[in-house]
C-alpha cells in the first residue's frame, strides 16, 4: 500500500523457479490427497479396534454384552472426527 512500485519491481520471480514451485505445490496437494484416501480405511479400522477392544474388555470384566457394539460405534465416530480434522481443513 505504501510503496506499490516496490512490490512490482522488487521481486520479480524467476519464471523457471515459479514454474518449479507451482509443480511442487500441485505435487504436494496430490500427495496429500492420495495419502488421505489410502489411510482413511486404516484410521476407521483402528478406531473401531481400539474402542471396540476396550468395550470387549469391559464386557468381560463387568459381565455385560452391550459395550462392544457401543465401543465400536464410539471408535468409529472418533476415527471419523480424526479424519475430518486431519484432511477436512481448507488448505
Amino acid at each position: 500500500m505504501v510503496r506499490p512500485a516496490m512490490s512490482e519491481e522488487g521481486h520479480r520471480p524467476d519464471p523457471q523457479e515459479s514454474e518449479d514451485s507451482e509443480q511442487d505445490r500441485i505435487d504436494s496437494e496430490h500427495r496429500g490427497f492420495a495419502n488421505a484416501a489410502w489411510s482413511i480405511p486404516s484410521y476407521i479400522l483402528s478406531g473401531m479396534a481400539v474402542y471396540g477392544g476396550l468395550g470387549w474388555l469391559l464386557d468381560r470384566w463387568l459381565g455385560t454384552s452391550a459395550l462392544l457394539p457401543i465401543g465400536i460405534l464410539v471408535g468409529l465416530a472418533l476415527a471419523l472426527y480424526l479424519v475430518f480434522h486431519r484432511y477436512g481443513r481448507t488448505s
Binding site: S42, Y43, L45, S46, V50, G75, L78, Y81
Partner: peptide, 18 residues
Amino acid sequence: VILAPIELLSNLILRPFT
C-alpha cells in the same frame, strides 16, 4: 488422550497390515 491410540494403531500396526 482419546485420539492418540487410534493414530498409533493406525500408523504402526494397521498400515503394514492393510
